[in-house]
Every structure is written in structure tokens, then in C-alpha cells.
Amino acid sequence: MTTQQSAIYYPAGEIEEFLPQIGRVVEIKDHELAVFRTSDGTIFAAENRNPHPKGGPLAEGIVSGYYLYDPLYDWKIDLNTGLVQAPDQGQVQMYPVKVENGQVWVAL
């Protein structure tokens, strides 16, 4: 556990554990997160819950560029903001991420 600008960061795993373009479920402090690594190595963490009214996990989505494509509802989600792209609407809770010495840290 480490702090940065009053946010508390928790270890989520080693960078090698997160394969490019594939989501991975990580549990931190009773929060189930979907962690994604883009093809350029950027890491994103989101609540592992689809904002669609019927819900569902996000970790099963497919990453392309900085977007997550949900296979259940065919939704496109911006990994930078968590916003669902038009014509659909909604927003995913995103969490700050940092990588230090090969370790991925997520702030809750």
C-alpha cells in the first residue's frame, strides 16, 4: 500500500500478469475490478460491472486501442473516461492506476 496525492494505492499484481488486450479480474478491498493492458502497455482499471441495465462482467471484453468492446451488449467503452460511446449511454467507474518497478497499483 502506498499513497500519492491523498489517494491510497493497492497492489494489483505484476505487470507481466496482465496480458495485452485481455481483461483480468482483481479483487482489492471488497472491490472487484477489471484490469486491462492495451497493446502499447497502458494499464486501466474499472469496476467489473457493465453499466448496461442487465449488468454483467467487463473483464470479458476485448480491448482495441483505448476502447473496451463488450461482447454481451456490443457496447464500446472509452477506457480513459469510462464513458459508453453513442448511441448507447452509461459510464463505468474507472480507478487511477500507476506502475512502479513492474508492480501495478490501483487507487480506490
Rank of each mutant, 00 (worst) to 15 (best):
T2K: 12
T2N: 12
Q5M: 11
A7T: 15
Y9E: 08
Y9L: 12
Y9K: 08
Y9D: 05
Y10F: 15
P11T: 13
P11L: 13
P11I: 14
P11S: 12
I15D: 03
E16D: 13
E16T: 14
E17H: 06
P20I: 09
P20Y: 14
Q21G: 00
I22R: 14
I22Y: 12
R24V: 10
R24D: 04
I28Y: 07
K29I: 05
D30L: 10
D30V: 06
H31D: 10
H31G: 00
E32W: 10
L33K: 07
A34R: 01
V35M: 01
F36S: 00
R37T: 05
R37G: 01
T38V: 09
S39I: 13
D40N: 10
G41P: 01
I43W: 03
I43P: 03
F44E: 00
A46M: 15
E47L: 13
E47F: 04
R49Y: 07
P51Q: 06
H52M: 06
H52N: 12
P53Q: 10
P53L: 12
G56A: 04
G56H: 02
P57Y: 12
L58F: 05
A59K: 03
A59Q: 04
E60H: 01
G61I: 01
S64M: 13
G65S: 07
Y67T: 04
Y69V: 01
D70P: 00
I77L: 06
D78C: 12
L79G: 03
N80I: 09
N80V: 08
L83Q: 10
V84L: 07
Q85M: 13
P87G: 14
D88R: 11
G90N: 04
V92Q: 09
Q93E: 12
M94D: 05
Y95N: 06
Y95V: 08
P96C: 11
V97N: 09
K98L: 14
K98Y: 04
N101W: 02
N101Y: 07
V104Y: 08
W105I: 08
A107H: 05
L108H: 04
L108N: 10
